[in-house]
Amino acid sequence: MSTVTVIDPTMSATREIEFRDALREAMTQEMRRDPRVFLLGEEVAQYNGAYKVSKGMLDEFGPRRIIDTPISESGFAGMAIGAAMMGLRPIVEFMSWSFSLVAADPILNNAPKMLYMSGGQFGCPIVFRGNDGAGGQLGSTHSWCVEGLFSNVPGLKMVIPSCPEDAKGLMTTAIRDDDPVFFLESERMLGMKGHVPEGDYLVPFGQAKVRREGTDCTLVSFGRPVNFCLDAAAELAKEGISCEVLDMRTIRPLDIDSIVRSVRKTNYCVVVDQSWSFGSPGSEVASQLHQHCFDDLDNFVHRVHSADVPTPYAFNLEQEYLPNARRICEAVRSCLYRA
């Protein structure tokens, strides 16, 4: 892999970098722009990042702004929230969102509620970021999709990019945002390459992107499974089924308007969400769609989630557990009465 710190300007129009480089570019540019921004987490500095997202940042910014913490999520997440209350803008890296569970109290009870409980006195401009989701045979404890758990909480924004370009644009927006942002990356996507604009690049929150246009069925997804949807849509096209793939990009705020617009065109909807089905973004989308599009839908909203079991280790079981392209294809055919 390459780390892009020096860029050939003649290459800029077609410049392709990895997802991790896109994240780093956003953080680096924002740290140059605003001295209040700093990064802390396990192995972010001397080790260059457990997943090399922060590679080289210690060299540029030094140990006062790229801060190695001990394995102590509850402590350093709480500390960063205190710093954010005073007006700094911390970026907290969780090596995995699975590890954020031991910091549930600060990230759920403090960050998203501080503005409200203080009657508007203390906001919390902070970004929590890290790997989310299964797919690397890490077993159940390390494979959390926190979308379902954490999106339940008012006061936070939840961001979940599916490609390098959005990774940069959404990260820049997240760092400049005055509210707490939960930024969900995926270890399985960090090496994904794609075109990423140079310089200041912001993607606004709450605006879904149509990743593939279609007329027969709307596929709504978040993060890594957007790519599974694109695979499924290509497969289904061979059968004459035209899918429109919506990449939501943020779960909170949720761009329900874009979903409604697409569903009024296709009359069918399948939601693909890698969290468990019970009380999830997928169930929330289905519920809101039944409210807004009751008369437009020609079938109930179908949903593809991770299987409702702890994440298995075995490769074959884990692949089947995920909302993979095959399961998406089956759901679309079923939704369209073509099963």
Binding site: G82, A83, M85, M86
Partner: peptide
Amino acid sequence: AQIPLGVGLAFACKYM
């Protein structure tokens, strides 16, 4: 829960 926050307040003072 307020003790990590307090350490963060002091961290911020020093950082600023």
